[in-house]
Design a protein around this nucleic acid. Structure first.
Lengths: 232, 232
DNA sequence: TCAACAGTGAGAGCACTGCTCTCCTAATTG
DNA sequence: CAATTAGGAGAGCAGTGCTCTCACTGTTGA
């Protein structure tokens, strides 16, 4: 059964969606700093106080946009991963990594919003954390499926320095149930390096150093896949 | 001979220095977004238009602060590196990496200023690029000194896939004259990972994942040192 | 059915910002 | 010593985030 919503409630979520759409466009044109609620109102043909009926303040609007950005990126990575056979870890890894970079280059300002300098004093209101883990869950799933196919080595490694590595990483064992804990450090490095590379590229730190970022990204991801022991 | 500067010129550079000091303090308290020229003026007992005698606009002041931040970080890393015997690559590597992280945690807002989201449309005015390379020069020097002590392997690797790697990386051959080009990818990964880790830590992306960042940083840097083949 | 009740937009207003311009003083310079 | 010039004062403009009151209108409970 379709949940019956009052016309008013519908109109409300439509206005909220419009505000966010206009905001995304303005951010894309002039960056986060250039986003003003007054201009959003103007674009919508409203008076300057109207948007405050929907967002208590600018930070609340930004938080909503951050949440959407995490989910948009997460969905893109999930889709890319799902296009490959779950047993082909290496293809999945490359697909996921490329999806991150592609999304970032398509939405540079939104990427900066979520992986750049945190905007307010301390924004992340738990809700965003959940959305932020969508990418790490995909990456963890790839590693988990890979290690599920090699019980011997897994058992070996697990018997190694398990406690040491385990102490440092929370939640990762949930996301990668079959990956031996001593591999967590490598997994963390890979995850960090994907975003480190994309951030360096987008924020201009490779200017004068990396000539062909496309090729370099592929080589780096290949090296990481080797280090992680991804097969095929 | 001491360069004779007129009292007026001296007073000018003193005022500029004061403006930057006050700005740094304000940024440290309320973040980059909270920096206003009017408040700087107020703190200095000046009228709101006075600072514009020294900085054409807010962006110019920010650019100056960015430049200083790069140089401050660069100097800290150089100092840390210099404290070790040049032949002990591994100790130098760890010292440099720790210096980056330490400086970042001591000046989080300034770190965000230079390694977070770029603030204006496209800020980096070449001057900053020069200052930004101080860290990479230190890292390149460490690798260079390491490879200077193993001519055999260097020659071997250099004979390998030199052209491929060389095409992607500019300037790196100047900073690391004795490092075989096929090592450039690993060097780039290491450089990127230092800052990727520090950014993730400072910007809150490890919350809920990395429990003890101090220990994890050491392990990651150790792993990198292994991958780079640093001895001792 | 009709009256009370929200939800919404309009508009004025406050405190703040970046930035410009003119005026004046006082130090510097030839 | 006269001419120049740098720097501060102060007013002012356009823009911002945000608040408050007022009026309208679709929705809802008696």
């Amino acid at each position: 059964m379709a949940t019956t919503t009052t016309p008013r409630a519908e109109a409300r979520i439509l206005q909220i969606e419009t505000i966010k759409e206009v905001s995304r466009r303005l951010i894309g044109e002039k960056g986060v700093a250039g986003l003003s609620l007054r201009e959003v109102a103007r674009e919508m043909g409203l008076v300057s106080s109207a948007p405050y009926r929907y967002f208590a303040n600018r930070d609340e609007l930004l938080t909503a946009l951050i949440l959407d950005a995490y989910n948009d990126l997460g969905a893109a990575v999930e889709r890319a991963d799902a296009r490959h056979s779950s047993s082909n870890s290496r293809a999945r890894w490359h697909a996921a990594a490329r999806a991150v970079r592609k999304w970032a280059k398509q939405h540079p300002h939104e990427y900066g919003l979520i992986y750049g300098t945190p905007v307010p004093n301390y924004e992340a209101p738990l809700l965003t954390i959940e959305a932020a883990t969508r990418v790490t869950r995909v990456l963890g799933g790839i590693l988990s499926d890979e290690w599920a196919r090699r019980p011997a080595r897994a058992a070996n490694s697990a018997a190694g320095n398990t406690p040491r590595g385990f102490l440092m990483v929370e939640n990762l064992s949930e996301q990668m149930p079959r990956v031996p804990p001593d591999q967590f450090v490598k997994a963390l490095m890979a995850w960090t390096l994907i975003f480190g590379f994309v951030s360096f590229e987008l924020f201009g730190h490779y200017v004068g150093t990396v000539r062909n970022a496309n090729v370099m990204f592929e080589r780096v991801m290949n090296e990481l896949a080797d280090d992680l022991g991804l097969s095929q």
